[in-house]
């Protein structure tokens, strides 16, 4: 997999610092599972976090070490890591949210053959899987906040570029686009938004509250 579109520095830093909404964390964890480049960059931001931690200092309670040793004595021994299910289309963090691989997704139709499945995350941002039939367009829309779209299968294009497996598109207020799935293979994406999209067409606008898009 040749990934051309990666996580931005600002998003990586926010993920390292633990400042992202859950839905964004999920998209990043999924991209990072596929991309050693971003994994190495995240490691650098974690090192920055380590350097920040090193500058902190607070007075411990008098019996702190003894209390900690008592905690250690009371904790169960580290369990062997659970056997990993065979790698399917979805990396592990996404499988944890879906409850399995592609076959376990509970799709809901959105019209024109497009389907979505909303994943259970905190409400400050929404995560969804999108299924766009080969050759099909997603209705033209703009963004009120940030939209992250990670391609898992197939590819889509919009005015900015082409996005293939593993690629992440980061859209914000400035971008209005009509993503179109490439012919040949149906496109499956993991998308997260922290504000409702702005649809330009009438019909999608009417349906919007229904689909939480």
């Amino acid at each position: 997999m040749t990934i051309r579109h990666h996580v931005s520095d600002a998003l990586l830093m926010a993920y390292s610092a633990g400042q992202l909404p859950e839905a964004f964390n999920l998209v990043l964890a999924t991209h990072l599972s596929l991309c050693d480049d971003c994994r190495a960059r995240l490691g650098a931001y974690d090192a920055l976090g380590g350097a920040m931690l090193d500058t902190c200092q607070a007075q411990l309670a008098g019996d702190s070490l003894e209390a900690c040793m008592a905690r250690i004595a009371g904790q169960p021994p580290a369990s062997a890591p659970a056997a990993r299910p065979p790698r399917g289309l979805f990396p592990q963090p996404l499988q944890d949210y879906v409850g399995g691989d592609l076959a376990a997704v509970k799709w809901r139709p959105l019209g024109m053959g497009v389907r979505q499945a909303i994943l259970p995350t905190g409400r400050s941002a929404t995560a969804r899987l999108l299924f766009i039939p080969a050759g099909q367009a997603v209705p033209d829309h703009g963004h009120r906040g940030t939209e992250l779209t990670l391609v898992l299968q197939g590819a889509f294009s919009d005015a900015t570029d082409r996005f293939g497996p593993g690629d992440l598109e980061i859209a914000n207020e400035e971008l209005e686009h009509t993503p179109v799935a490439e012919p040949g293979q149906d496109c499956i994406c993991l998308a997260a938004t922290d504000a409702p999209l702005r649809f330009t067409g009438m019909i999608p606008r009417l349906l919007q509250p229904l689909f939480r898009i």
Partner: peptide, 10 residues
């Protein structure tokens, strides 16, 4: 109680 943070695959 900040947002849950899934980790990349081991």
């Amino acid at each position: 109680r900040r947002a849950k943070r899934p980790e990349p695959e081991d």
